[in-house]
């Protein structure tokens, strides 16, 4: 089964470049603005879009993403509305891969089977669920694979060679390497260490390896893109979004443009990288 993610990486391989992956929270700062931002991202150069599913207790996220989730929840965002937003996005864009990222409880409460049906129908391509390690694969990972959705696993600096095969076993789409031990929005990773880690993961898999956590500038994005198959940027985009809001935390006329502008310059950084997608097959 070929997903939009597989197709996108095949295109990038032909163009000999790495992917620029963006992360923003669904419904931040409100559902209408959030949809407008997501619609603007492909034009700004995003190759893959990750969308956060807001959750009250985001245990792996730093203050920036925590605040984004709170804004979204305060604006009435729910998992049902997140799926509806992706359905609306898909009316104009049938090629940009969409990956939902978040925590398990809202999916569990929605109902795994129903969620997978609705996610597939909405045009979602992959899932990243932070609190579902391989030890809990029977919960969502295996059912998602059967439903034709990619289940993208996080590999981290603590995932050693002994553990990597277990982590990669049911992974599809790409591997998301978390470049630091820590929460989102933390200090940047050393790009040489990242290159080494990506090489280590690639000895175990033919999947593309994208790298996230701590990438904030076009230069940093280029550095990571030269050493991996994709750079993921989240907190830096959410920071700009947050800075564009008015005193009451509401979107302003600048919000969409400011986020899109930063995305465009980060995309520029990724595209200027030498190397590109090195994965075969």
């Amino acid at each position: 089964m070929t997903t939009r993610i597989d197709t996108r990486f095949a295109e990038l391989r032909k163009q000999e470049r790495s992917a620029f992956v963006t992360f923003l929270m669904a419904g931040d700062p409100d559902p209408v603005t959030s949809l407008a931002i997501i619609k603007a991202l492909p034009k700004a150069g995003a190759d893959i879009i990750e969308i956060g599913m807001p959750f009250t207790d985001p245990m792996a996220d730093g203050p920036v993403i925590q605040a984004a989730g709170r804004r979204a929840l305060n604006a009435g965002m729910t998992l049902t509305k997140t799926l509806r937003m992706i359905r609306d996005f898909r009316k104009d864009d049938d090629s940009t891969p969409i990956v939902l990222m978040g925590y398990y409880n809202p999916i569990y409460i929605y109902g795994v089977e129903t969620f997978l049906d609705d996610a597939k129908a909405a045009g979602i391509d992959g899932l990243i669920v932070v609190d579902l390690p391989p030890e809990e694969d029977s919960e969502l990972c295996i059912p998602a694979m059967k439903a034709g959705l990619n289940f993208i696993r996080l590999a981290t600096p603590t995932t050693d060679d002994k553990r990597l095969p277990a982590v990669l076993a049911n992974t599809s789409g790409f591997v998301y390497y978390v470049s630091i031990t820590g929460i989102t929005g933390s200090a940047a990773a050393n790009s040489a260490a990242v290159g080494e880690a990506v090489g280590r993961i690639k000895r175990h898999t033919s999947l593309p390896v994208c790298v996230g956590f701590g990438i904030r500038t076009p230069d940093a994005a280029r550095g990571i893109a030269e050493r991996s198959d994709g750079a993921v940027v989240g907190s830096a985009l959410v920071d700009v979004l947050s800075g564009s809001l008015d005193a009451d935390g509401k979107a302003t006329a600048e919000t969409v443009n400011m986020v899109a502008d930063l995305a465009a310059s980060l995309a520029e950084g990724v595209r200027s990288a030498k190397g590109g997608v090195k994965t075969s097959g």
């Binding site: 245990m59 792996a60 398990y104 932070v130 609190d131 579902l132 390690p133 391989p134 030890e135 809990e136 696993r153 996080l154 590999a155 981290t156 600096p157 603590t158 995932t159 050693d160 553990r163 982590v167 978390v178 031990t181 820590g182």
Partner: peptide, 12 residues
């Protein structure tokens, strides 16, 4: 029960 934690913590 179970072990619903981020991958970073799983080895620990």
């Amino acid at each position: 029960g179970g072990r619903f934690v981020a991958e970073t913590l799983m080895p620990l």
